[in-house]
Design a protein around this nucleic acid. Sequence first.
DNA 1: CAAGCCACATGATAGCTATCATGTTGGAAT
DNA 2: ATTCCAACATGATAGCTATCATGTGGCTTG
Lengths: 176, 176
Amino acid sequence: MIAIMLEWLSLLPRKQLVLAGGAYLFHRGDRIRTMFVVETGSITLTRHGKSGASLVLQRAQPGSVLAEASLFATTYHCDAIADMDATVLAVPRSDFLRQIETSPQFARAWAMHLSQEVRVARSRAEILSLRTVAERLDAWLADKDALPDKGTWKTIAAELGTSPEALYREIARRRF
Amino acid sequence: MIAIMLEWLSLLPRKQLVLAGGAYLFHRGDRIRTMFVVETGSITLTRHGKSGASLVLQRAQPGSVLAEASLFATTYHCDAIADMDATVLAVPRSDFLRQIETSPQFARAWAMHLSQEVRVARSRAEILSLRTVAERLDAWLADKDALPDKGTWKTIAAELGTSPEALYREIARRRF
DNA sequence: CAAGCCACATGATAGCTATCATGTTGGAAT
DNA sequence: ATTCCAACATGATAGCTATCATGTGGCTTG
């Protein structure tokens, strides 16, 4: 029942863009004409403040839709840069909007996608608001009900906002 | 341009529910028939794992829609409890769905609401993944471009996942 | 106007984690 | 089978923050 936007996009006219690592997909202020979905690699959306400080808004992995809110804006409010070599699918925004308006199934899939992203992002934020690695792992497990698979722990550590070492230690502590 | 779902709901049949602090609005496993919006007070959604560990999925303040993903599920996957005395508006899910299907404006408002929530939650998660209070405040400022108003610092501290004292110190440090 | 409360403020200390260093191991590739 | 690499593992240390304590000032309330 997990809707994959990539599949739905196969119904729409689209182009593939190839980006070298470090290349910009768009800049803040650019006019929005297109919706993007990451196919391979990864794209990071960053907002830069006046003071030079910056804030990551999204780390888009394969399958992720970029800047969902851009569907309803006229210009981008952030920069998009390829962290590594990447490919993205580009769908004209007008086609995307028309599809939402004319296909109830597509509109439903879009709403489900957004709801899911909200749920995931909120969970992550709540986990990260916990203070110790032990608490964060507990909370993560409340959502998964099983210890993470070996080979992926480093990734989980990043998801938990901690260092791999700290996670190794916490897991080791639980083997008794 | 900020869509307030509460306003849109005035178009739909709805009831007001009054909850005492500590009361459950729904339990995991309950059949979903209704969409809720918090009017006053606050409602927390919590998922409990087998091991006894728990994860907060959402802290809904006035104006927040509860468990947006429940629009497409048959039963709840979490518990909803009133942190304090609260009132919520209840809209039959069938009416909500029909409104989305029949009113393009409503569907658009719903999609905008979801996009906004995604953006906010992702930003918060990225801020919380930073290690020091200084970095978190910088990131927060990149989004706001101004120091927080006095009288709200405690709230900001919670948003930054830190203690009020730590935030006071960091702000004090910047007054030079 | 006095009392009370709450946010702001700052010092001291303990505790947890990031980081660096240094192995160990298991699987992939040749 | 040997090499190579990345994940897993664990020790030591420095640094940052949570927490407790204690104080100050402004605003509300009676």
